[in-house]
Amino acid sequence: MRTRMITPAVVFAVAGALLLSACSPAEQTARPEPSGSATSARPSGPSMKELSRTDVRTVIDRLDRAPISERDDAVSASIRTDRVVLGEDGDQIEMAMPDGLTYISFAPYRSQTHDCTFHAPSSCVGELRNTELHLTITDLATGETYADEQTRTFDNGFIGVWLPRGITADVVIVIGDSEARSVISTVNEKDPTCITTMPLKKRG
């Protein structure tokens, strides 16, 4: 496996075989099958080279917001606390996160979820796709509010948020009369960026 360097992003060495997709097909919720026969052409998404010519914010936004029907699984992506790892045809590129920031994805659920550590926007699918919700994220140490908004999950069932690195925060997601809570950390390099452990429960 070859790892290439790009600028201006800082690139980290990849040692050994690196698992790019945290959400394998066996771990995620069912995805819609492409229409047509098995030989039908797959949707054509951006190549790794095309993505690497943009900034990391654009890369993540483009991949995470892509409708499932338009995904191209030829390009894999793994979002880490400090970088994004892109892979295609045995090559890898690592793009550094903006200074002091990271990207965390949340997939609240009612009855079905999957194990996930690092969000893989090319393969992860949550249960509640295109669902209206209210999201609140509050710093547990300072009380600062990082998010307090009405929004909706992407077509992949996730909602993604840019947050400061080095924090511990309380996350509350409200959908109708149900609520899901979690405490997240962006302190360590191996902290999860894919939060799929937020079951919705009726509010008391």
Rank of each mutant, 00 (worst) to 15 (best):
E189Q: 12
Y103C: 10
N156M: 04
K190F: 08
R65W: 02
S52R: 04
A74W: 08
E27T: 02
L133S: 08
L101D: 13
D155V: 02
D82W: 00
S182V: 11
P43K: 09
S21Y: 01
G90V: 13
L200R: 02
H119G: 03
R4V: 15
G143M: 00
D191F: 04
S40H: 06
G160H: 03
A15S: 11
I104D: 04
E70Y: 00
E149N: 07
I175E: 09
C23G: 10
I184N: 08
P199V: 00
T142H: 11
P8V: 01
S78C: 08
A13P: 15
L163V: 04
T7R: 14
P164E: 07
G16M: 05
P98H: 00
I6Y: 03
A66W: 00
T142V: 07
S69E: 12
R152H: 14
I104P: 08
G166P: 04
D155P: 00
R110K: 14
D148H: 01
G126L: 08
H114A: 11
T138A: 09
T142S: 15
Y103F: 15
R65A: 15
Q150G: 12
F12Q: 11
I195V: 12
I195Y: 03
D72S: 12
T136R: 14
S35L: 13
H119M: 07
S37K: 13
G157V: 02
E127C: 10
R152V: 09
C23P: 07
A77L: 06
P25F: 01
A15G: 08
T136W: 01
V14C: 07
A180V: 08
V14P: 02
I173M: 15
F118Y: 13
L128W: 05
I68A: 13
R83E: 13
D73E: 14
S21F: 03
R2A: 14
T153Y: 00
A147S: 14
S44R: 10
S105R: 10
L133G: 07
P67Y: 06
E189I: 11
